[in-house]
């Protein structure tokens, strides 16, 4: 891709008040309920939250891949200034896999078992560019080499089942890189892999992201993984982003009780606040979320006002949170 547009501070993604709901017979599931986030070129955003908080649906919404009974019901997704909500299917198709790529969680399931790696890669190239098959093949081989697959000329002929999980995920990453996208959404791509391979892939992704100047949204339920990888962290709870900021801001001075709880339950927890070492209770059922702050049934700081919707509060730096009783920024201040 041309590097002229690669202004390192260019905002490539600006999501505001995104709402994606599932209209099920049992009721409306507000999977994504007012998510806002921005991403700059070369930046890695870690999207963290427990299972069912809406991380994947946020990713699929950006790609326009939410299937019925799910539907986008509001908000805005600006991709390099272009509104994607309401864009034509053909326009979205031309962006998917081309300017915006996605990597899925389970590498065992993302490749079609009856098609070779070569078919997968060539068809992805040809879906967006009219080049010759040999050129498409050459580019595919380059992409495989870039993600550390040895003898790519030979291995590209293989079928998915001939690769290990880690190798398949590398293939998926190579496919995502084929068109040097502006944005990659990686939905827990290392969760299914063992720890050594996970950390290899993490550092390679970080490097690729910096070198190619692409924006990366890394979805994970593991704050530890994201802490080592991302520039910024967005913490998601019950369809909302409850806190976001730089990695240092969020990890050193969490303002939202839920974030603090996540840190408390992460392996590298600081010893402060024994009350916060784990989050009590379970996530509310998506059809039966408390009004106001959805976290209030599990929160130690909840008061009556928490029955109302907490507004987004901005700190003096880039940190923001949604809580009526944010934690203080230093240990001293919390003492009475």
């Amino acid at each position: 891709m041309t590097m002229d547009a690669t202004n390192s501070t260019e905002t490539i993604l600006e999501v505001s008040d995104l709402q994606t709901h599932f209209f099920t017979p049992a009721g409306v599931v507000k999977s994504v309920d007012g998510v806002s986030l921005t991403l700059k070129r070369g930046e890695i955003l870690g999207l963290v939250g427990e299972s069912g908080s809406g991380k994947s649906i946020t990713g699929f919404s950006i790609l326009g891949l939410v299937d019925p009974p799910g539907r986008n019901v509001g908000g805005s997704i600006l991709f390099r200034g272009e509104e994607l909500l309401g864009a034509s299917e053909e326009r979205l198709r031309s962006l998917r896999g081309n300017r915006i790529a996605m990597i899925f969680q389970d590498p065992m399931m993302t490749l079609n078992p009856v098609l070779s790696i070569k078919t997968h890669m060539i068809e992805t190239v040809l879906a967006h560019e009219s080049v010759s098959r040999s050129e498409a093949l050459a580019r595919s081989i380059d992409a495989l080499r870039m993600v550390g697959i040895s003898q790519p000329e030979k291995r590209i002929e293989s079928y998915p089942h001939e690769f290990s999980g880690g190798m398949r995920q590398r293939v998926a990453i190579a496919i995502a890189l084929l068109h040097k996208p502006d944005l990659i959404i990686a939905d827990e791509p290392t969760t299914a892999l063992d720890v050594t391979i996970q950390s290899q892939i993490l550092s390679e992704m970080q490097k690729l992201c910096r070198e190619l100047g692409l924006g990366l949204i890394w979805i994970s339920h593991d704050l530890g993984v994201v802490a080592g990888l991302a520039d910024r962290i967005a913490v998601m709870y019950a369809g909302r982003i409850v806190e976001q900021g730089t990695v240092d801001e969020v990890l050193d001075t969490p303002r939202h009780p839920y974030t603090a709880g996540l840190i408390g339950s992460a392996p590298a927890a600081n010893s402060r606040g024994s009350r916060l070492t784990q989050i009590r209770g379970a996530a509310p059922h998506p059809l039966n979320r408390p009004e106001g702050c959805a976290f209030r049934t599990r929160c130690d700081y909840a008061t009556d006002i928490c029955r109302q919707e907490p507004p987004e509060t901005r700190g003096s730096n880039t940190q923001s949170w949604r809580c009526f009783h944010p934690l203080a920024t230093s240990n001293l201040e919390t003492l009475p």
Binding site: L65, R96, G97, F104, E123, T124, A127
Partner: peptide, 17 residues
């Protein structure tokens, strides 16, 4: 509903293919 179909869509393949 399988993942590889969703991945194929995420790669921008046409529905026909």
């Amino acid at each position: 509903p399988l993942d590889f179909i969703k991945f194929a869509r995420a790669r921008g393949l046409s529905s026909r293919r």
